[in-house]
């Protein structure tokens, strides 16, 4: 009997630890879910609800005004250029940082991360300081305009918006590619080179298949960030209907203060929310794919 009791006691002890583990698990899950719900989901949901407050007709009207369409155009233009530039830059930088050894490699890797740690507003101001009226690069731009007979403006114009967006999103792609390229090593490239493959063939046949999904994932992240950028662009863009992006337009509508314009600003916001949800879904799909690939 005593033996039985001992055994039962042991079993009980196991149950207790299991139960307390279970309790911890459920407490943590509850806290996380509540936090995410109140901090993220509810506010976003209220954006959608508010945008439809005046009815679908008002909603459609609000998102198709001249200003909003212009802002959408600028946003898409800036995003497309940004993604193209950063994709190119991201591949070049991550390739250089992972496949070669050189002095200052670590330093460059750190520099790439600057946009992560700096406030976007500062990025915007930095461009004003560089290309603005008293900026050091202003004479260069003027000289180019004189030479080519063009009238390129950077600050308070579309190029400034694009530059600011590029600055803010520029680590996204390379940061996705670097771990993948590092994990891959240089063996396969070396093997291909030994068989007589040249640079472009090696990239196309060996390296690219490796980074494909990570690149897609990086592009999605970069797109999402570029669409929503506010601070840096705000510093460089002052003309509604010309250089305003969607986030700036939303801000302008909201600040206008009338009940109608506030609802309109929610309507325009809902465009970004919908895009965000789509991006989130894509992100999940491609993150999964890129991970599955990394494990190969």
């Amino acid at each position: 009997m005593a033996y039985m009791k001992d055994d039962q006691r042991k079993k009980l002890a196991v149950d207790v630890t299991r139960n307390s583990k279970g309790a911890t698990k459920y407490i943590l899950i509850t806290i996380s879910v509540l936090f995410v719900f109140f901090m993220l989901i509810l506010p976003l949901f209220s954006v959608i609800v508010n945008s439809l407050k005046e009815g679908l007709g008002f909603y459609l009207e609000a998102i198709s005004t001249e200003y909003v369409l212009a802002a959408l155009g600028v946003t898409i233009l800036a995003t497309v250029i940004t993604v193209i530039v950063n994709t190119f830059f991201g591949i070049v930088a991550s390739w250089a940082l992972t496949k070669f050894t050189f002095k200052g490699k670590q330093f460059i890797a750190t520099l790439i991360d600057i946009p992560f740690s700096i406030s976007p507003v500062i990025a915007g101001l930095a461009y004003i300081m560089t290309f603005g009226r008293s900026g050091w690069a202003k004479p260069v731009v003027d000289w180019i305009n004189d030479m080519l007979g063009t009238d390129i403006k950077i600050v308070f114009a579309i190029p400034g918006v694009v530059l600011a967006t590029i600055f803010v999103t520029f680590p996204f792609i390379s940061r996705e590619l670097i771990p993948v390229l590092n994990a891959q090593g240089t063996d396969e490239e070396e093997a291909a080179a030994l068989m007589g493959a040249k640079g472009w063939t090696i990239f196309k046949r060996i390296t690219f298949p490796h980074i494909k999904w990570a690149l897609v994932y990086g592009v999605i992240l970069c797109t999402a960030r570029a669409l929503g950028e506010f601070g840096a662009v705000n510093a460089l863009s002052k003309t509604r209907g010309e250089t305003f992006t969607l986030p700036l337009e939303i801000d302008a509508l909201y600040l206008a203060g009338s009940a109608d314009s506030i609802t309109a600003s929610f309507a325009v916001s809902s465009i970004l929310v919908i895009i965000a949800v789509i991006v989130l879904i894509l992100r999940n799909i491609f993150e999964h794919k890129s991970k599955a690939n990394r494990e190969v």
Partner: peptide
């Protein structure tokens, strides 16, 4: 020369066939 690498360095996004054919295509 033919070279067999320590960890074989097989092209992991190519099938067995494609791996063997790679050098010939070049």
């Amino acid at each position: 020369i033919g070279f067999v690498f320590q960890n074989y360095a097989l092209f992991r996004y190519m099938t067995v066939e494609e791996n063997i054919a790679f050098g010939l295509e070049l």
